Amino acid sequence: MNYKFYFEGGQNNSYFFETVEGIIYEIIFKFTPYLFESKNIEIIENTFEFSILLNYNPNSKTPSNDKKIGATVVAIFMDFYLKRNKAISVYICDSADGKELVRKRKFDQWFLEYNDETFVKVDEILMDMENNKFPISLIISKSNPHRAEIFEAFVQLSMNNKK
């Protein structure tokens, strides 16, 4: 069971939903054709950065452990992939507040709980110039015909980042 959501679209392919506590989340699939070094136009045209954004919290406290949130994120993910079956999603955990590992654990939990073997997820760590670490995940459909090339581009992205 998940929350009702709606697709607003726009530049970020935005989805929105509201929890029982009045918290509003935005799920985006931001087009990022520059992310991978690939000459394959299908990979370039189908690469998106996936983000889960807390848009509004009327309580200004940490949201509760609401199981419907994970189910809703997964339902949105499925809806997006129905629209773009060759989509390539890259999830980069926000680290602005130092809680990136908490976000990664939560996302990993949702993936394990709700994945019906439709998707494959590969995890890596990116580092910035100050050696701050950012968990990153690649999520694609198992039926994507360019799986091997996408995996290679993802590994290359993380390798280039560590140089």
Results as ranks from 00 to 15, higher is better:
34 Y>C: 00
43 I>K: 05
21 E>T: 06
34 Y>N: 12
23 I>H: 07
63 P>K: 05
54 L>Q: 14
84 R>V: 12
67 K>R: 12
93 C>K: 00
70 G>N: 08
51 S>T: 12
73 V>K: 02
21 E>D: 15
29 F>I: 02
33 P>H: 04
54 L>S: 13
82 L>C: 11
88 I>T: 05
17 F>R: 09
12 N>L: 03
72 T>P: 10
35 L>H: 11
16 F>H: 14
83 K>L: 12
73 V>A: 01
92 I>Q: 08
19 T>E: 14
49 E>I: 09
73 V>N: 10
18 E>Q: 15
88 I>D: 03
16 F>I: 08
87 A>T: 09
21 E>P: 00
75 A>P: 00
47 T>C: 10
63 P>A: 07
73 V>Q: 06
32 T>V: 08
60 S>V: 10
19 T>I: 03
12 N>V: 01
77 F>C: 04
43 I>C: 02
17 F>W: 06
65 N>T: 07
20 V>H: 11
54 L>I: 09
73 V>T: 12
23 I>C: 09
51 S>L: 02
50 F>L: 15
24 I>H: 09
82 L>S: 15
87 A>I: 03
56 Y>S: 10
61 K>M: 02
90 V>M: 04
57 N>Y: 08
17 F>T: 10
63 P>S: 06
19 T>F: 04
15 Y>L: 04
59 N>M: 07
37 E>L: 07
36 F>T: 02
29 F>Q: 09
22 G>M: 09
60 S>F: 10
29 F>N: 10
92 I>T: 15
11 Q>W: 06
66 D>K: 04
39 K>I: 06
55 N>H: 07
66 D>A: 11
54 L>V: 07
47 T>E: 09
82 L>A: 15
83 K>G: 14
63 P>M: 05
14 S>K: 14
57 N>K: 07
28 I>L: 00
40 N>C: 05
76 I>T: 08
59 N>K: 13
28 I>E: 14
36 F>R: 03
45 E>T: 10
16 F>S: 14
28 I>V: 15
86 K>R: 12
42 E>P: 07
40 N>R: 04
34 Y>V: 00
88 I>Q: 01
72 T>V: 06
79 D>V: 01
49 E>H: 05
81 Y>D: 06
31 F>M: 07
27 I>Y: 03
70 G>M: 01
13 N>P: 05
81 Y>L: 10
71 A>Y: 04
68 K>D: 14
93 C>T: 07
65 N>G: 03
27 I>M: 12
72 T>S: 13
26 E>G: 12
74 V>M: 11
72 T>Y: 09
88 I>W: 01
23 I>N: 15
79 D>A: 14
47 T>M: 03
18 E>Y: 02
36 F>H: 02
62 T>R: 14
47 T>D: 06
43 I>R: 06
19 T>H: 03
41 I>S: 15
59 N>P: 01
93 C>H: 01
67 K>E: 15
89 S>G: 13
25 Y>Q: 08
44 I>S: 02
75 A>C: 01
57 N>A: 05
85 N>Q: 12
74 V>N: 10
83 K>N: 08
17 F>I: 07
64 S>K: 13
75 A>S: 14
52 I>K: 11
91 Y>H: 13
44 I>R: 13
27 I>P: 00
49 E>K: 13
63 P>F: 01
93 C>N: 13
